[in-house]
Nucleic acid binder design. Structure first.
Lengths: 223, 223
DNA sequence: GTCTATAACCCGATAGAC
DNA sequence: GTCTATCGGGTTATAGAC
């Protein structure tokens, strides 16, 4: 395990950050670039895009201020790569979860996707915070690229709800509204997790998935 | 109606911002101070605390850069007053909603508080965004003052859930977990509202309150 | 690929005239 | 209470040596 060359990096690794940004295929480039990415995620999560200076990031990665610009065109470029990769992996996480239950019916599919996404947000809450809450700092072109991925995640959840309604196993008066509510619940985990002695990512995932089923299930007050 | 002296102020007023920061008792001080507050809420909501300069705020309020410091001790002080007042009014909104249904039982109380808070977040989404998402920018002392109000809101919701469980009208395996999930759903409205052609604050409030009842109600998969 | 040095600019906050 | 002018320092990004 690489020795941290600057304060803050060890915490980041202990945070599950290194795991998140491991890259077997070296698509992230040389070690310095990966160190910068990890440092940037940690700093952006703690203080936001505008609250983080490129010097902060370089320091945490053990480089001089100019070192950032060897690997990234600008601060926004660095932020964009984090945001794009984070969204790609979140989408992949959701799609994989749904596929893993096969043709199991809407209820199990809904449970799977909410559980997977909630667990993801909790486990990778540092990355998730960066990825969810500073999107307006992206350039318009970059923002649109990320928004396209977000729409795919929304469509995945909405599709499952529609399926369930069509099959008669869900009772959902407003599919778009419930989609938004479910994704809100999941997204917001990144804001507060972890909170004093609360549950593991997996426990939270199960809890939220159960709540999602309660929301969608036919219920007694129907007449 | 006061004529706007700088760009941005009219939008802020159209936004329901002026209404939010109206103050019959003049506790907010002279007109310039109120104009600064409204301008600051608008700017902080759009670009975050660190992304907003005191010059931006002064410009929007039609004052010189130094004008800010006549009415506020610092940028953080200005931010704190917004955050504190916003939280006080949100708490008041929640308490009033619960009181307004009298001794109506847990289900109607839960419905009332979720409906009121959701409607509030949507109607005052500009203020809510500032108040919900930049709390770490407060000084530790100021943060603690605001956190105390947040704990009261959490306790209000948790209390209603506990009441319902005790009375046997709710089935909630994890009261703390559901409290968090409900507040997440409500809080997150500030992040995305308004979204293309979606419902009015009141419609959203009713939808979310109904979803809350579905989550808490006894359900058929109990054995 | 990393450094030192620095350009060009913006920041929060204050001094002092009116 | 508002202004102009400015202090001291931090910002992103680049130039050029090694």
């Amino acid at each position: 395990m690489a020795k941290a060359t600057a304060a803050g990096l060890d915490e980041a690794q202990a945070n599950g950050l290194a795991e998140m940004w491991e890259d077997g295929e070296d698509r992230l480039g040389p070690a310095s670039a990966r160190r910068l990415l990890v440092a940037a995620v940690d700093a952006f999560a703690a203080r936001g895009y505008h609250g983080t200076s490129t010097r902060d990031i370089a320091d945490r990665a053990g480089l001089s201020p100019a070192g950032v610009y060897v690997h990234f065109a600008s601060k926004e470029d660095l932020f964009f790569r984090i945001t794009l990769l984070g969204h790609e992996r979140t989408l992949h996480n959701a799609v994989t979860a749904v596929q893993s239950v096969g043709e199991a019916g809407p209820a199990r599919r809904l449970h799977a996707v909410i559980e997977a996404q909630t667990t993801w947000q909790a486990r990778h809450h540092t990355t998730a915070r960066v990825v969810e809450y500073d999107l307006p700092c992206l350039s318009p072109e970059h923002y649109e690229q990320v928004a396209a991925i977000r729409r795919k995640i929304t469509a995945l959840v909405r599709g499952i709800l529609n399926e369930g309604v069509r099959a008669g196993v869900f009772d959902v008066p407003d599919v778009d509204g419930m989609t938004l509510a479910l994704l809100s619940m999941v997204t917001d985990v990144a804001r507060w997790y972890p909170s004093n002695g609360r549950q593991s990512p997996e426990q939270l995932g199960t809890l939220y998935a159960d709540l999602a089923l309660r929301m969608a299930a036919p219920h007694s007050s129907d007449s």
